[in-house]
Design a protein around this nucleic acid. Structure first.
Length: 902
RNA sequence: GCGGGCGUGGUGGAACCGGUAGACACACAAGACUUAAAAUCUUGAGGGGGUAUCCCCGUGCGGGUUCGAGUCCCGCCGCCCGCACCA
């Protein structure tokens, strides 16, 4: 790309400009056209907005409140294109709602705890706090240069003591309210680094840094009881009408409500007391007669008991554990099982024995950690049965199929049908079969307990918030040998993170920090040990939106203020947060309501999920990620190759992925902003791509945006002479100005609708059309002025500048000022279109013959059908095709289309 | 593997509730202006054929419903996101 940098002394380039009339004459105007210089104007307006506190809001006095929020960033140190896109969209909404008379709350903060700071500490020997706050300072400067209408007086970082202090207070309230629990769960343990690994840090079963084989460990950890709210979180999704349907669907599936049956199978040859029965959960009890095996999770207590005396099984269990803890890794692994010596008895046929396997695809966290396999009607079970040569007995007959003609090959049948091969269930529907099995079994007993219980099961698990890391919010409890787990008394909050820590030894620095660890038990006064787990950073981001309403209160919220502003009217962020962050926040709102901090149940009324900014990835010979800035692309017709810009090394071009720091495929917007200015960058990211769709990053087009900025400025300059003379209100006095006004009002109408619905790319296209119309009109109004034309020009230009104002606020202020306004456009009211100018009196209808377009007719709006028909049939191409024969049918869609069926 | 989404010219995309496919922009080409370049302005363009206002094909692929399908249904293919310790 070419660089159009302004000279550093800030001198403006001056150009003579010329206007060409419609008649081909060239006029050189007396005025010199000054190019718009964002380097000078953008800081000027930003300073003025700051001085006037234009975007500072008094939350105590909410008049027509509107809360716009974009997902706050992790302070990586540099903003990237995803941020620019996200925050520009939010800013357009904020400025638009402000212009429409709302009191807009639009804050910004930092999701500042988390692993990267610790990784930086280890790599560069810098304290996480220092690293984080330096990053925040750098990113704040970058964001401020974008000219967002943010209320910076509300800024906070989640690692601010003031913030995590209140989070600890919330935790204690949740603890008291019974929303917190402790239980064991599995983690990925790196034996060399002596640390717990995140799933993304486990690569092919090895630790990313040490390369050591990852082990699984059971740790006692803190959990928030989100599963208590599973039903409520599910049903309330129906009330979230301003959320994308896909996000609601994803959450619905994630919560995963299923109605089924818990069935106890007697173990025929079980000897020990705990091995005489096994419970499975199934949503398909109707297929019980098709059961071929029982499979236990490797983590099932029974598996552990059997493994104790079976070294081969112990080895298999160990192998399963090496898969790590992520569901993805477990479910994509080859299906494997180990046949134990146990056999289960079929509930309806004591003679039938089902082999009991331990299988790597059964999850302990879901249901009972054991399943019965029905190969004919479940694909995974079928794959397993084929691999281990187990019988496949179909029990559901598809509709209108002869039993003899139906068999299951490599594909399980999961569709509807009638039960057969199933004894007393034969002939029943699937639904009736489920019920019949439940009724038959729930009164029987196996080993003293009912053989079956109907159960509603959720996939949603409790939320484990313990992290064995330094850079997070300390969990405010104390462990005492006498008193057990004791909450830190509120007057002792916050539990501060100690400053003097080092990362040169593996493990969590808090675990070896004497001053942090050693405490006196608040209950008995004996010496005790402080909890060293810190909270998951998802906790930090689950209530920040509430904190913004009273960012400096000494309680987590000021309920009256929070209730006046929440729920957030428009929340904007990436789809990648569709499930976890949004679900946790929904839970938090309920938990905060239960503990008196809020009185709303849903945190986000409107949700908009923007698409991700993606980019190709590049890797060098040793497998290291390489940033696009260091890549030179060689493009030939047939091939694309990449080289390292400095070393010249050949690089491998990888897949297109979401921009992320870990894969280095980020593009820094700084160059773009310093070259073209914030407005150009803002306009550019709003143009073209629909905001909800992913975009593959390219700089192609940025110059077009830049030219547009100059073009608008030039239009205003060209028109200035005319504007100075124009009176405020005079009706149009000729067809051209009437048409101009019509186009202008129509654009206002369309853009208002599009911006309100966050369809920014469509709004931009509308604005371009208005601009094109104004460009054609200016020479006319300048050369052959009339009062009507001058008025039309002023109206159209003011509309244009107001429509671009939320998107390019600096340019808009400059134009507004140039047009003679003494007030700021950011304080101006949004224009309202004149309804009389929005209707057409004639319409153009397309005429089709047999669905193929053959011409068009122009008629008065709402012309009667017979008149439309007559006009269509008399059209030359139509008459020609009909060739004298009568039309079989004529379909008229009023004001749109006529279809003649020949 | 499971769940969700997307696929339209050279490119980004538009097309409302099933009703003129390609608005708007980028890139490109030609022309005007200029000593020249930049900037600006004008014009052109989905593909194929025809010397004009004409015809055929065309929204990832294969079927279907309909007077009419980019849009709805069924089956594929490709890409992207999430999968609970990345944020």
């Amino acid at each position: 790309m070419t660089f159009l940098r302004f000279s550093d002394d800030g001198r403006r380039a001056k150009f003579l400009f010329k206007l060409k009339s419609r008649h081909g004459r060239t006029i050189v105007t007396a005025q010199a056209f000054e190019r718009y210089n964002p380097r000078e104007k953008e800081p000027f307006w930003q300073n003025l907005w700051a001085e006037r506190k234009s975007f500072v809001v008094d939350t105590a006095d909410p008049k027509d409140p509107y809360y716009v929020l974009e997902m706050f960033p992790y302070p990586s140190g540099r903003i990237h294109m995803g941020h620019v896109r996200n925050y520009t969209m939010g800013d357009v909404v904020a400025r638009f709602q402000r212009a429409r008379g709302k009191t807009v709350l639009h804050p910004m903060g930092w999701d500042a705890f988390g692993m990267p700071a610790e990784n930086a500490a280890m790599a560069n020997n810098i304290h996480p706090r220092e690293w984080t706050y330096a990053n925040i300072a750098a990113m704040r400067t970058q964001l401020q240069a974008m000219g967002f209408s943010l209320d910076w007086s509300r800024e906070f970082a989640t690692c601010d003591e003031e913030y995590y202090h209140r989070q600890q207070a919330l935790f204690l309230d949740f603890l008291e309210a019974g929303l917190v629990t402790r239980k064991t769960s599995k983690v990925n343990w790196d034996p060399v680094d002596q640390t717990v690994l995140a799933n993304e840090q486990v690569i092919d079963g090895r630790g990313w840094r040490s390369g050591a084989l990852v082990e699984q460990r059971e740790l006692t950890q803190w959990f928030l009881k989100i599963s208590d709210y599973a039903e409520e979180l599910l049903t309330a999704l129906d009330t979230l009408e301003d959320w994308p349907e896909k996000v609601r669907l994803m959450q619905r599936n994630w919560i995963g409500r299923s109605e089924g049956l818990k069935v106890r199978f007697a173990i025929a040859n079980g000897t020990a007391a705990d091995a005489r029965a096994v419970e499975v959960f199934t949503t398909r009890p109707d297929t019980l007669f098709g059961a071929a095996f029982i499979a236990l999770s490797a983590d099932h207590p029974l598996s552990a008991r059997l493994a104790a005396s079976d070294p081969e099984l112990a080895a298999f269990v160990a192998e399963c554990r090496r898969l790590g803890t992520s569901a993805e890794a477990i479910e994509t692994a080859d299906k494997k099982g180990y046949r134990t010596t146990l056999e289960a008895t079929h509930p309806f046929d004591p003679e039938r024995k089902l082999p009991v396997y331990v299988a790597n695809f059964v999850l302990m966290d879901y249901g009972t950690g054991a399943i019965f396999g029905c190969p004919a009607h479940d694909q995974r079970d079928l794959d397993f049965a084929r691999a281990y040569d187990l019988p496949v007995r179909p029990v559901v007959l598809p509709p209108e199929t002869e039993p003899a003609a139906f068999s299951v090959g490599t594909e399980a049948y999961t569709g509807p049908g009638t039960l057969y091969n199933s004894d007393f269930l034969d002939g029943m529907s699937i639904e009736d079969g489920k019920d019949a099995v439940a009724r038959a079994l729930e009164t029987r007993k196996v080993e003293g307990k009912p053989q079956a219980t109907r159960q509603v099961n959720y996939r949603l698990r409790d939320w484990g918030i313990s992290r064995q890391r330094y850079w997070g919010c300390p969990i405010p409890v104390i462990h005492c040998d006498q008193c057990g787990v004791v909450p830190v008394p509120r007057e002792n909050l916050p539990v501060r993170l100690p400053e003097d820590v080092s990362f040169d030894t593996p493990g969590n620095p808090l675990d070896r920090h004497k001053g942090f660890l050693d405490v006196v038990c608040p209950e008995c006064g004996e010496s005790a040990r402080r909890e060293t787990d810190t909270m998951d950073t998802f906790v930090d981001s689950s209530w920040y939106f509430a904190r913004f309403t009273a960012p400096h209160a000494d309680t987590p919220t000021i309920p009256a203020v929070a209730n006046a502003w929440l729920p957030v009217d428009q929340y904007i962020g990436g789809v990648e947060h569709a499930i976890l962050h949004l679900l946790y926040s929904r839970f938090f709102a309920r938990a905060m309501k239960a503990t008196g901090h809020l009185d709303v149940t849903e945190p986000f009324k409107g949700l908009f999920t923007q698409g991700m900014v993606t980019h190709e990835t590049y890797k060098d010979g040793s497998g290291n990620w390489v940033a696009p800035a260091d890549v030179v692309l060689d493009q030939s017709v047939t091939d694309r190759a990449a080289r390292h810009a400095t070393t010249g090394e050949d690089l491998v071009i990888g897949s297109v992925e979401k921009m992320s720091k870990s894969k280095k495929n980020v593009v820094d917007p700084d160059d773009m902003i310093s070259t073209y200015g914030a407005d150009t960058a803002r306009w550019f990211v709003l143009s073209d791509s629909p905001p909800e769709r992913d975009v593959q990053w390219t700089e192609a087009g940025i110059e077009g945006a830049w030219r547009y900025v100059q073009r608008v400025w030039k239009l205003v300059s060209d028109a200035r002479a005319v504007l100075e003379q124009s009176p405020s209100t005079v009706a149009s006095d000729d067809p051209e100005s009437a048409a101009m006004l019509k186009v202008s009002h129509r654009a206002v109408d369309q853009v208002t609708g599009d911006v309100g619905a966050l369809r920014f790319n469509r709004a931009v296209a509308q604005i371009y059309e208005l601009t094109n119309a104004v460009s054609r009109f200016v020479p006319l109004a300048v050369e052959e002025p009339s009062i009507g034309r001058q008025n039309a020009l002023r109206t159209a230009l003011e509309h244009l500048v107001q429509l671009i104002a939320p998107m390019m606020p600096h340019l808009a202020e400059s134009c507004w000022e140039a047009m003679g306004h003494k007030t700021l456009i950011c304080d101006a009211d949004w224009p309202v279109p004149d309804p009389a100018l929005l209707v057409d009196d004639t319409v153009v209808l397309a005429v089709q013959v047999n669905g193929k377009r053959r011409g068009e007719i122009s008629l008065p709006k709402d012309a009667p059908t017979d008149q439309v028909e007559a006009a269509a049939l008399s059209l030359e191409p139509v008459a020609r095709i009909l060739d004298g024969k009568p039309a079989r049918k004529v379909i008229v869609v009023p004001n749109r289309i006529v279809n003649v069926v020949a």
